[in-house]
Design a protein around this nucleic acid. Sequence first.
DNA 1: ATCAGCACCTGTTGGC
DNA 2: TGCCAACAGGTGCTGA
Length: 283
Amino acid sequence: MPELPEVQTVVSQLARKIVGKRFSGFSSAWAKQVTPLPRTLARRIAGAIVTGTRRFGKHIVIDLDNGYSLIIHLKMTGHLLYKTDENRADKIFTEDRVNGYIHHIFTFTDGATLEFSDMRKFGWVRLEKTAAVEKLKSIRELGIDALSPELTVERLRSLFARKQARPIGAVLLEQTVIAGVGNIYRSEALFVAGVRPERRVGSIKKGEWSGILVSLKRVLRQATRLHGTTDGDFRDTDGLPGRFQRTLFVYGRAGLPCKKCGTMVERKRLGQRSFFFCARCQQ
DNA sequence: ATCAGCACCTGTTGGC
DNA sequence: TGCCAACAGGTGCTGA
């Protein structure tokens, strides 16, 4: 679920909620996806104060004042819920789908908790020396961030140049080329750009690249403002759903009329993932 | 070097 | 209604 807009929503909210707070501990009921072992992790963060939060692609980083940083990946169904003594019992946190799968709990000295829930158990938590964060393989190998000002049309074209034979929709998912785009926003961005996802990179005309870039950035920025897309699972740190789902043009809308031209939206697959498009609006 | 395909989990949906 | 296969927003590894 969580792609750039959803992860950025969590990172921004955490910046407001936990910077300046002191961790008191950590406990886990699913140690498989935690590095180092939970007891060691707990010992290393206890007493440390949060100094900031960052995003690398779809990775969440929480920096501490003791030289360590937490790195968290939500994968498909992960959530980070921030609860205080005041709101812990609120209705928003009672939903089984989100609250029924809490595997890890970070505790703060003021009684607040940061709780990691993940139905499918794909998400993970790591503690690394802050200096080692950007050396972590999955972060080191990330391409340029999709919302980076340095991602220009020229840069985009040169990055895609060695992928001539591949479908553009498949390359957009590659985190090593452009970081942050997932299955929802590749479909949306290519709809807005009027380009079919199966198109080979080599067939994209010179003039189409700027449309693709502008569309991608616009879709990601708007989705971030609306706290992402909730098509089932995603919730922000307050347990609230995103609001971009109402704005989706094609994702998840197979068989429904295109919002621009009324033609039925279609669904196909690239590899193992589905994508959605309008055969009339996209060439 | 690249890339398709499957594996990692659990829940939901759609077809028969 | 019941069962089972297919599928779900992300990556990491394997082997061609």
